[in-house]
Simulated assay, not measured.
Amino acid sequence: MTAMKKWVLAWVCLSFSLMAHAGNPRSGGGSPPAPGTERYERRCQSRAPQRTVKPQGTLLWGTRRDWDAGKAADERSSVLVSASLEPLRQADAQVKGLKLDGGRLVAVSTSGSGLPGGRGVVGAVLQGKAGDGKPVEVAICGAEPSAEDPGMVWYRIETWNALAQEWENPCVALDRVPDPRALAIQGVWDASGARQDVPGQLTFACENGALTKCIRWGYKPWEHRDGQSLAALHQACTRMARADYCGNGRSHTRQETAIDMYDRLGVLARTTESSAEWDVARASFEAAWAPDGATCLARTRDGRALETVLQECPGRFSADAVLDLGEGDRCAVRRVDLSPAAALLRNQSYGGPSGL
């Protein structure tokens, strides 16, 4: 082969390499947004290595705060806070939308009937919304019936990351749950942690968030106990799990902090014997809880002074007198606008009393 032929062959190979690199949306640079059809074809494809995210404290939705890992984001922000059941952005031809049946999604056909056996759910793309109100698409990539509850289904979801031009799992990964799934829950939670029942809207609650933890602890909002809905107990639990004393969406705890809870409906009872997971001798009463935050406190979970809580939500609590709830549970401060009977559950945690 002559030198000229070798030069031409090398030039052709290099040109094809550059063209392939320019056409790869993952190669960085100013890649244009992927067209709708091609973008949907790229959903639910496993990738390696996965992006790693460090624990961000106790989460409500269990989702990332922002797609930009280097950006400082408020703990009350999220890349995904809600999704619409219909119309769907992408679905099988016979699927009109989705509906919630307890703890699982059901595809609704164009004729209005539900499709049996979970058909039509996996592969659907829903229109979602981020914490800042911007639209975001959510793809359902897998469905796994819960081993502990046949009526509950775990979903593997991905959302479209417009920053990276990729489909990514919006759920925060932790060491104990490195590839988190999500539950579909009726209702929408705002930045303050308050729940609104918005018709046609649901929340994908990730495994490492308080919404899902409270369900796994027994407070399934779609179920009833002694004729009473567990929705209010579930909401009170989300405040307790995050130590959201003021009911403003701000947590006062650390990741993986041990707690013990007990409620007035008897779903969970107070732990009276020590085990490898819980030391009764170290535990003491912390607070009582309603759906909108603590009704009274004995101390804080993370050790900060009670004054800091009073300053965070001025006028909400009073420290005029000690409130005795019985069974050794005594509060140092109490809500001024609620009676003690409004508390749905109480909790203990480790730590000594912190006076005013």
Rank of each mutant, 00 (worst) to 15 (best):
G133Q: 14
A107W: 08
G293M: 11
G118P: 04
T63Q: 13
E148K: 09
G218T: 12
L85N: 03
M240T: 05
R89A: 12
T271G: 08
A48Y: 13
V138Y: 02
V8L: 11
M4C: 03
L98S: 04
W289L: 12
G28T: 06
G193F: 02
V172R: 00
K213V: 10
P32K: 07
Q165G: 00
A287N: 09
P340H: 06
Q186R: 15
P135T: 09
P353E: 04
K220Q: 14
C44P: 00
S192R: 15
E327H: 12
D329L: 06
C44S: 00
E277K: 06
D175L: 13
M261E: 11
E38S: 05
K71F: 11
W278Y: 15
G117S: 05
A164D: 10
R282Y: 05
V81H: 12
E41R: 13
C206A: 03
G303W: 07
E286R: 07
D302G: 03
A91K: 03
D190H: 08
A294S: 15
H224N: 14
R216W: 05
P340E: 09
V125Y: 01
G293C: 09
L310K: 05
R176Y: 11
T272D: 09
G128C: 02
G112F: 02
V81G: 01
K96W: 10
T295E: 02
R346T: 04
R301G: 07
P25K: 02
T63M: 10
L9G: 00
M240L: 15
M261L: 15
R250Q: 09
Q45C: 01
R76T: 13
V122Y: 04
R119G: 07
G62L: 02
R176N: 09
S113F: 14
R282L: 14
S111M: 03
R156M: 08
P178D: 11
L98H: 04
K71L: 13
G218V: 13
V122L: 11
T58V: 15
E41N: 11
G218Y: 14
S77V: 02
R42G: 00
G123W: 13
S78E: 06
T271R: 14
W11G: 06
W217C: 00
T308D: 12
L80G: 01
T308L: 09
A3W: 12
S113T: 13
I215T: 06
T63C: 11
A143K: 01
W7C: 03
L345C: 04
R330N: 05
G326N: 07
Q186Y: 10
P49D: 10
T238W: 09
Q196I: 02
T52R: 11
P150Y: 00
W167S: 08
S318L: 07
G28N: 07
R64P: 01
A231G: 06
E144N: 08
L115Y: 02
